[in-house]
């Protein structure tokens, strides 16, 4: 959108060519390769509006959002409200769509503020969502830190930007090198559940390592090195990165097992090697796990 910077900006109103919706651009939420996203209002409620002159990509994103709608009720992606064209005063044609505004913070910011024990908890929820998505025949594709938002009440990882979402079995439409297993020489670019799980594991590694790391001469060794910083999640992430999980459920089960194991009194790793801060984190993690465990017990009790 080279020439759009001046034409499309905060403060203007857009009216749709076909459906005649009228949307104020309140604030810019972000922009990327495809287009820009603005905060807008629809029937007095905040919404997000994405606008671009890349007609094909936008139309395909709308297609994806429409098909995700069918499996909703289960938070899969932002809900789609309207899709239309906008003709600017200069005659330039844009395509836009209006979707649910997902309010929240970036995953890394959230983890920094709330503590590392939230990472596995949030991943658990995301694995559920991914499972639903995969079962409905889609692979997310461009899964990465930038495309994940933590929305509160209840705390949950939501995804924005479905630009990479691809039908199962096809070639991944859009990816970001760091999260792409093809780039690391660790798999194909075919859309299958393990593709998303690789990207998910890289996202976790990025957070645990405090940033991305370079591919280097031997990509596999670079990943191995990064895994050293993954703590208790290491075996799980390693399995995801080497394509051992064929579906999200397998990974989720391992994660649940891992989280539950922590309540066992025998220490798994030698305590002497733990740093002070690590111990504190573990303590917090443990209390979370215990409370999750208590809730599960309560639910089982209710069901009986």
């Amino acid at each position: 959108m080279k020439n759009s910077a001046a034409e499309i900006r905060t403060g203007i109103r857009l009216s749709g060519k076909w459906h005649h919706g009228d949307y104020p651009l309140i604030r810019k939420l972000g922009s990327g390769a495809i287009g820009s996203v603005y905060l807008t209002e629809r029937n007095g409620i905040h919404a997000a509006l994405k606008i671009s002159d890349k007609r094909t990509s936008m139309t395909m994103e709308v297609k994806v959002l429409q098909s995700l709608k069918k499996v909703q009720g289960y938070f899969l992606g932002p809900c789609l409200f309207d899709t239309d064209d906008y003709v600017s005063p200069s005659g330039q044609l844009y395509t836009f769509y209006v979707m649910e505004y997902i309010q929240g913070s970036r995953l890394d910011t959230y983890i920094k503020a709330k503590g590392p024990e939230w990472l596995p908890v949030l991943l658990l929820g995301l694995l559920d969502d991914l499972d639903h998505l995969h079962r409905s025949g889609w692979i997310f594709g461009d899964l990465k830190l930038d495309n994940l938002v933590v929305s509160e009440k209840p705390a949950r990882l939501r995804w924005v930007d479905v630009g990479g979402t691809t039908q199962l079995g096809r070639a991944i439409k859009e990816y970001t090198e760091f999260y792409d297993r093809g780039h690391w020489g660790m798999g194909s670019r075919k859309a299958e559940p393990s593709y998303d799980l690789f990207a998910l594991a890289m996202t976790a590694l990025e957070i645990l390592n405090g940033g991305r790391f370079a591919k280097g001469e031997t990509p596999k060794n670079s990943i191995k090195k990064a895994l050293h910083g993954a703590g208790k999640l290491r075996p799980l992430l390693e399995k995801a990165l080497t394509g051992k999980y064929t579906d999200s459920i397998g990974m989720k089960q391992d994660l649940v097992k891992l989280l539950m194991k922590k309540k066992s009194p025998t220490p798994v790793s030698p305590p002497s090697r733990m740093t002070k801060s690590n111990r504190r984190k573990t303590g917090l993690g443990e209390s979370i796990v215990l409370s999750v465990y208590a809730i599960i017990c309560y639910v089982i009790y209710l069901l009986q």
Partner: peptide, 8 residues
């Protein structure tokens, strides 16, 4: 070739 070979 990695990208193209992921196609059908």
């Amino acid at each position: 070739s990695i990208s193209m070979n992921a196609r059908l």
